[in-house]
Simulated assay, not measured.
Amino acid sequence: MYFMLTSQRKKAILDALARDGQVLATELSASFGVSEDTVRRDLRELASEGLLQRVHGGALPASPAIAPFARREVMESDAKRRIARKAAEMIAPGQVVIVDGGTTSALFVRQLPANLSATIVTHNPSVAVALAEHASLEVVLIGGRLYKHSIVTVGAAAVEAMSHIHADIYFMGVTGVHPTAGLTTGDFEEAHIKRALAARAAETVVLASAAKLNAASAYRIGGIELAQTIIVENAADAKLVEPIERAGITVLRA
């Protein structure tokens, strides 16, 4: 193995990550002929640039969905719209439905039939306001501290309010879906809120555009088995979807 500059190692790491979907520090160390400490430093620096997500023993692709809300609104809008439409079709009259935060949820509320009679529970003020004119929907808004990245409420007050809910479906937004790293998001408190909401619903449905598949963020919501169903875009690569299906999760394409 010839000597590699730091920049060359980093490029090789990112190339391997794009090709294999994950990298292991031990394998990189052997491949580059450098110590694991050196590899860990490379991974740490790449993570600080937002180019990967470090996990125990190596790294995974970083989710692009940790960008600010306004920027995420314009990302993959067509795919997100189709996912939102598929999610809306799952709701039956009379059900109690929890709607999460995020840009896909904002699209989701626009897909609800005008004559749908159901109860929508949300910790997203934007969703609640968007449904204010929907005559046949009851809207329950959960209060708390506003987490501006996703425009949702978080904190102890929100968790306490959720403890009184028994919902049929929870539509969860995530920033990463990975067969081993699980369901992840970019904020510690938001991860806690999402776990609490999943515990209050008979079924959890994850809405995941292709960029979120085989990606990870810093905070784990739970294992992939926390979801019963994951809705992905129709063009999602089969090799990214197959590990999810092998885990026993129903995958719907939109």
Rank of each mutant, 00 (worst) to 15 (best):
T6G: 09
K11G: 12
L14C: 12
D15H: 11
A16F: 09
A18K: 14
R19S: 14
G21T: 08
V23T: 10
L24R: 14
R44V: 03
V55H: 04
H56N: 12
A59R: 02
L60M: 04
L60H: 04
L60T: 00
A62V: 04
F69V: 02
A70L: 11
V74Q: 05
V74T: 15
A79C: 05
A79I: 13
A84K: 07
R85N: 04
K86Q: 14
I91R: 00
I91G: 02
A92C: 10
P93C: 11
Q95K: 06
Q95T: 03
V96R: 02
V99H: 07
T103R: 01
T103N: 07
F108C: 06
F108Y: 07
V109E: 00
R110D: 15
Q111H: 09
P113T: 05
A114L: 15
T119W: 00
H123W: 12
H123R: 01
N124D: 15
P125Q: 01
A128Q: 00
V129L: 05
A130D: 05
E133F: 11
G143W: 06
G144W: 09
Y147C: 11
H149K: 02
T153C: 10
V154F: 07
I165K: 01
I169N: 02
Y170Q: 03
G176A: 00
F188C: 05
E190N: 08
H192D: 06
I193W: 00
K194L: 11
A196R: 09
A196E: 10
L197E: 04
R200S: 13
A210E: 10
A210Y: 00
A211L: 05
N214C: 10
Y219K: 05
I221H: 01
I224H: 02
A227V: 12
A235P: 04
A236S: 13
A238C: 01
A238I: 14
L240E: 02
E242H: 14
P243W: 03
E245R: 15
A247S: 08
T250V: 10
T250M: 05
